[in-house]
Amino acid sequence: MKILHIIKEFTETGNVDTIIEDQEAPDNEVTIFRLKENKDYAKLVDLIFASDQVYTW
């Protein structure tokens, strides 16, 4: 399963880290996109539609 976690600029991660870490299993391909550091929106859109599940934190 392809999972995308989008981390927004002002998000306090907290238990978000727990969720991401626990989903990083052999069956899952987890990608983290940090909007504070990366504004490549075309790449982000590609990732959104290439992923089975999308989280925006």
């Binding site: 909007l35 075309a42 859109v45």
Partner: peptide, 24 residues
Amino acid sequence: LGILVNTDKYLEDIVGVTEAAKAV
């Protein structure tokens, strides 16, 4: 693509994502 906007903090990101999505 659905975009739920529930804060006023991310105007540029919303515009950026929308324009990139429309472009493809």
